[in-house]
Computed example of a mutant assay.
Amino acid sequence: MYRSKSKAMALLPWLLVLPVVILRAFTTIYPVTKTIRDSFFDIRLLAGKNVFCGFENYIRMFHDPKVLISIQFTVIFVFVSMFFHITLGVLLAMALNMKFKGQRFLRTIVLIPWAMPSVVAGMAAKWAFNNDYGLINDLIRRIVPSFQYNWLIYRGSARAAVIAVDLWKDLPFFAILVLSNLQFISGDLYEAAKVDGASARQCFTKITLPLIAKGVATLCIPFTLWRLTSFDLVYSMTSGGPGEDTALIAYRITTEAFTNLNIGYASAMAVVLFLIMMAFSLINMRITGSKKFET
């Protein structure tokens, strides 16, 4: 009797969480399997079409100029944005880690851009980069009165503007997370290094960087995935323009699914994006789990 009661008590936690597990499995597994299934069908709601097409959606994707442009900018967006997230994020974190008056206040206000919804940030940036009444050109005209430039109608500057706004918004949050890693480093290590005659540069390269490397690499996993699935910033700031030059792959998927109502084609792109995200996750997990990051 005691043994049966122990078994019942052991099963009780599982029974309590079972409804949540079932709900979570349904809301996760069903959409994924439905998307994979739809990717092999030509589903066009406007044409009333729903027929099996095999790998045609996948083949079409890599011959579609719009999709290729989206993939190109997505790669540029992810790598450039993450490069500056890492370099500037570490520098900002080190600045916030210094002891000075108003340190807590600065740590608080630096998070304001991150707390702002991406749609709001995108709309504000769209106004800021306007040639006639935008904040950016107004500041430049204080130095160069005759300056005229439409930032969001040229490919290079529009892409640079999207990346800059993404950095402005999410860099502070990245820096705060790096700061939490910095605060775990004992001050005794720096004191011992100074006694041995180490310079500030040597302290940074030999103590700080090795000890925060694994934390920074781990942070790159979610931040890279967020860049890959970024949609709302482009939607509110450029609507993918000029032309298709700032249309990230997530924006292209949304356009195909909800504007063109081409569900099958959008599902195929979503599956490819899912595989790319999974590959990034595996690479990052392999890197962060390697021995060179062990402390």
Rank of each mutant, 00 (worst) to 15 (best):
M1W: 08
M1Q: 09
Y2T: 14
R3N: 08
S4Q: 14
M9A: 15
A10T: 01
P13W: 02
W14K: 01
L15C: 05
I22M: 03
R24M: 14
R24C: 15
A25H: 05
F26N: 07
T28W: 07
I29E: 03
K34T: 10
I36Q: 14
F41N: 04
I43F: 07
R44F: 01
R44H: 12
L46E: 11
A47V: 02
A47K: 13
K49R: 09
N50H: 11
F55I: 13
M61C: 04
F62T: 02
P65T: 08
K66A: 00
K66P: 04
L68G: 02
I69G: 05
I69Y: 00
S70Q: 06
I71C: 13
F73T: 08
F77V: 05
F79T: 04
V80Q: 07
V80C: 11
F83N: 01
F84S: 00
L91D: 14
A93N: 08
F100N: 08
K101F: 07
K101M: 02
L106G: 06
R107G: 13
L111R: 00
I112D: 04
I112L: 12
A115R: 02
M116I: 04
P117N: 03
P117T: 01
S118A: 11
V119T: 14
V119Q: 08
V120N: 06
G122I: 02
G122P: 02
A124D: 03
A124Q: 09
N130M: 03
Y133W: 13
G134L: 06
L135M: 11
L135N: 05
N137E: 11
D138H: 13
D138C: 02
L139Q: 15
L139H: 14
I140L: 14
R141A: 02
R142Q: 15
I143Y: 15
I143A: 14
V144C: 11
Y149S: 07
L152H: 14
Y154F: 14
R155V: 11
G156T: 15
G156V: 12
A158R: 13
A158P: 06
R159M: 12
V162P: 10
I163S: 05
V165F: 05
V165D: 08
L167Y: 02
L171Q: 04
Q183G: 13
L189P: 01
E191T: 02
A193Y: 09
A193K: 12
G197T: 11
C203S: 15
T205S: 13
K206M: 07
T208V: 08
L211M: 10
I212T: 00
G215Q: 06
T218K: 12
T224F: 01
L225V: 04
L228E: 09
F231C: 03
L233Q: 00
T238L: 05
G241T: 13
D245Y: 11
L248Q: 10
I249S: 08
A250W: 01
Y251Q: 05
R252G: 00
R252K: 05
T254W: 09
F258C: 00
F258Q: 01
T259K: 15
L261Q: 15
I263Q: 07
I263Y: 08
I263A: 04
G264F: 10
G264S: 12
G264K: 06
S267K: 14
A268V: 05
A270I: 07
M277N: 06
M277V: 10
A279T: 14
G289F: 02
G289R: 00
K291W: 06
K291E: 15
F293M: 14
F293P: 14
E294P: 09
T295D: 05
